[in-house]
Amino acid sequence: MARLLADFEACQGYGNCITGAPDVYDIDDDGKVVLLRSEIDDADRPRVEEAARSCPVDALSIED
C-alpha cells in the first residue's frame, strides 16, 4: 500500500486530479482538494500516479 499526500496550501483548485482519478480525489466548496482515500494498492498506482502528476502546482504526492 502507498500513502496519498496533498499540500492543501499549494492546491489551487485546477481539478485535473479529479478527472484522472475521481475515486481518489475530489474538491470541496472552497476549491481545495479532498482525499477520498488515504492509501492505494499497487494495482491502482500507475493511474493515481498519473493523476497526481497532472497537478499544475505539484500539490499531490504518493509515498511508499
Binding site: G13, G15, I18, I27, G31
Partner: peptide, 14 residues
C-alpha cells in the same frame, strides 16, 4: 473563482 463549479461541469461534460 469557482473551482467546484468547474469540476462539476468538467465531470458532466465527460
Amino acid at each position: 473563482n469557482w473551482p467546484k463549479a468547474l469540476v462539476i461541469c468538467r465531470t458532466l461534460m465527460g
